[in-house]
Design a protein around this nucleic acid. Structure first.
Lengths: 197, 197
DNA sequence: GATCTAATTAGATAATTATCAAATCAGCAG
DNA sequence: CTGCTGATTTGATAATTATCTAATTAGATC
């Protein structure tokens, strides 16, 4: 349940090499040997750490020829870091960021949908049939992409595959629901005002 | 530095017994044997875990006769949990909670003062002479108390002592600057609007 | 001072794990 | 098919650490 995963999460972050890996990946993807070089350890050690980070859903990888590029799942990291507060205190986070009640309820609803449709390690169980829920799920996934960055179709597919194998359907939905737009094969995020319109 | 402390923090939270201790203390102070009983471990084990939690400044203790009550420093926990995001990403937290620029600047200023006047484990190095900085420091300390709760002078002293040994001066300042008020020996927080007035 | 209670310290054990070298695997380019 | 390159797996080692029992300390009470 909850506790064991929390323990794993913090145990995994409780290692200097792994924290440094996350910090390096925050500036963009890197392949294994590059990480090994920058950190002064051997490739097997990187493999070992990547296993643990992957288990938490904090990274995903994209392959190019023989080289595997590791990417940071920044939104997962941000989401999971405060999870311990939800366990230690009955309800999450602190008073000052409760904002107004409407926002809170909306967010709670979204959180519930995400809880339902994603596994603990961040995979999408299935695409919701209900439009409203579908949009919540898409928004969650799209938040892991960077505003202003250009994504070749192949890279976008790989990203979506970290959630669900049917990347083609989801990529099409991204466009249909205005989360992204395509310009001769290159994808880019729309501003949030357009999402779901 | 930063990194080693971050690692320690997460390593310490990476243990089920310690997380359960924090969750128990979130509902109010408990003494060692009570913790040992509820968790099904022996008192030495509790001592061991308390050492680690104390090192991080996540708990403080108050003695009553032979019994030592452990309290959770909830504000320290909340503060430290997201520290890793500041390290992994150059700047802290996420965009959506940046609020307006003025708030951000004020908060940054406060953070700088707190950084300067508190040690890493949450002790107050000295009482600032400048009034403005002093108020920031007091506000930080007062935030660890609970709104609406009544504090006997002795308990308030003990709390303040977890920051600085000169509890008498600081307790007096709390009153003079309207952070708290006293009613026949019992102290209680004022609403935030009055603080520093 | 003698005794009681609660906590801590000391010492031991078993489990976990970060790391490396060596071997193996998986694509890719001739 | 053959070799090349980067990643993973295997197996070993050293370090860390959660937990226990036994011994000790620190206050309080009588």
């Amino acid at each position: 349940m909850q506790l064991q995963r929390l323990v794993n999460f913090h145990k995994t972050l409780g290692d200097p090499t792994r924290i440094r890996i996350l910090a390096l990946l925050a500036n963009g993807p890197l392949h294994g040997q590059a990480l090994a070089g920058k950190l002064g350890v051997t490739p097997p050690t990187i493999s070992h750490h990547m296993d643990k980070l992957r288990e938490l859903g904090l990274i995903y990888e994209r392959r190019d020829k023989n080289t595997i590029y590791f990417h940071l799942h920044a939104n997962h990291l941000k989401r999971d870091v405060t999870a311990i507060l939800d366990v230690v205190f009955q309800q999450g986070i602190s008073e000052e960021q409760e904002e107004n009640e409407i926002m809170r309820t909306q967010e709670a609803e979204k959180a519930a949908v995400i809880q339902n449709f994603f596994t603990l390690d961040g995979k999408l169980k299935s695409i919701p049939a209900q439009r409203k829920k579908k949009l919540i799920v898409f928004e969650h996934m799209v938040k892991g992409l960077s505003m202003g960055k250009k994504y070749p179709e192949k890279e976008l597919n790989e990203y979506i595959k970290t959630f669900h194998e049917d990347y083609a359907t989801i990529r099409r939905e991204f466009i249909m629901n205005q989360y992204m737009y395509r310009e001769n094969g290159i994808y880019e995020m729309n501003p949030p005002e357009l999402w779901g319109k």
